[in-house]
Design a protein around this nucleic acid. Structure first.
Length: 378
DNA sequence: AACGGCAGCAACCGCGAGTAC
DNA sequence: AGTACTCGCGGTTGCTGCCGT
């Protein structure tokens, strides 16, 4: 049996909505709520299919929609989130209050994508097509660091999103001591620390290279970025803030996602390389050591990662570490561990040492923040 | 004024995930 | 467990208005 049509095609109106139709839809939803979209058109006296009604409502008629020109801040956010999340418009829209995914998608396709392309930035990878701007400034190293952080942030967004979902379905097996130490935190909006750090880079690059991201054309001079850093110290220490539940989920995912090459013992080993984590009895309590990936039981976790990161294999989260740490001579133990895991042929080079120290410091900061307060920073 | 090209955007389509039965 | 159904998402289409010739 084939797929049933969403509605009877015959006799239903298509195309642009008239003001009368809009009013009918508004009146009905105002009085009854939308309920079943499939049943709505008949009840509301509309000769439209339910899908069309839902789209009209969510993209146009809903009262909490902001229309009109995108602000510079919104443009920045879209570009940054697109770099993190790709074409996941609904996910991007959750970070832009009152904007719909459709509107953001259209704006990206008609404005931002072209603008980036014109500037020599690949709108898919968000990388410069030429490395001319990288020479001598060290900026590319910072961008590379942020790329690693972006991977973390992407994973964190995924984890937080799933926590939100799962909190409504099942109780996640978070250890009691974690729960008791975790202050109540709002689930939304998430703290986009990487974005803020990124804005710092963006702000810095504006002053240094006359606008590597001239997002809004000539009006770039209007200072809308929230962070500015002097050129002699362009990058702040980017503290990545995870709340405890998020880290729990993240590590949980690592254990699962890395299980093809190792079991959950990897997590334990990683944690033991980090003094702050080593002291945490939660690690054993959480049973990482026993975890292995089971495609039947744990498919949901893998899918969750993959769903939004088709271009970023699961192993890339790990690679984010291996790439960084493999160049950091100060982290031999963990480096070797990760190299072995990755089966890569990385050699230790000093070229990236400074910037990667910063990155590794940031990861340690993450742990510090986690251990000390569990609260978001910034 | 007429025409064609183009950009912007609303709306549609097909698919996948989740859910009810 | 299998099937049908609903909903949401992302890609794509096509209408509309603007602009240049």
């Amino acid at each position: 049996m084939g797929r049933s049509p969403c509605c009877e095609k015959v006799g239903l109106k298509k195309g642009p909505w008239t003001p009368e139709e809009d009013q009918k839809l508004l009146d009905y939803i105002d009085e009854h709520g939308h309920g079943s979209w499939r049943a709505l058109p008949a009840k509301a006296g509309l000769r439209r299919c339910g899908k069309s009604c839902r789209l009209r409502w969510t993209n146009y008629l809903r009262p909490d929609i902001k229309r009109g020109k995108f602000s510079l801040q919104e443009e920045q956010t879209i570009i940054q989130l697109h770099a993190l999340l790709g074409n996941r418009w609904s996910a991007i829209a959750t970070h832009l209050p009152k904007r719909t995914d459709n509107e953001i998608k259209n704006y990206w396709n008609t404005h931002l994508k072209k603008r980036l392309a014109k500037m020599g930035i690949d709108p898919v990878t968000h990388k410069l097509k030429s490395d001319a701007l990288c020479s001598g400034s060290g900026h590319c190293k910072d961008v590379a660091n942020l790329s690693h952080m972006a991977q973390w942030e992407s994973a964190r967004l995924e984890a937080e999103a799933r926590l939100v979902r799962e909190s409504q379905l099942v109780s996640y097996p978070v250890p009691a001591q974690l729960i008791s130490k975790t202050p109540a935190q709002p689930l939304l909006p998430p703290c986009l620390d990487v974005l803020k750090a990124w804005q710092g880079v963006w702000s810095w690059s504006k002053s240094m290279s006359a606008g590597i991201f001239p997002i809004a054309g000539d009006d770039l001079e209007s200072p809308t970025s929230t962070l500015n850093f002097p050129a002699e110290n362009p990058l702040p220490i980017q503290t990545v803030a995870f709340n405890e539940s998020t880290v729990t989920t993240l590590l949980h995912d690592f254990a699962k996602s890395s299980a093809t090459s190792c079991n959950g013992g990897f997590i334990k080993e990683v944690c033991e390389q980090m003094p702050e984590l080593k002291e945490r009895s939660d690690i054993d309590t959480m049973g990482w050591q026993d975890m292995t990936y089971n495609s039947t039981e744990s498919a949901w976790a893998v899918d969750s990662f993959r769903a939004g990161n088709e271009n970023m294999p699961l192993s890339n989260i790990m690679e984010g570490f291996t790439d960084t740490l493999a160049y950091n001579c100060d982290d031999h133990n963990l480096m070797n561990l990760l190299i072995n895991l990755d089966n890569g042929d990385k050699s230790c080079s000093g070229d990236f040492e400074d910037s990667n120290k910063n990155y590794w410091n940031n990861v340690n900061n993450l742990v510090n923040v986690w251990s000390s307060s569990g609260s978001h920073v910034f």
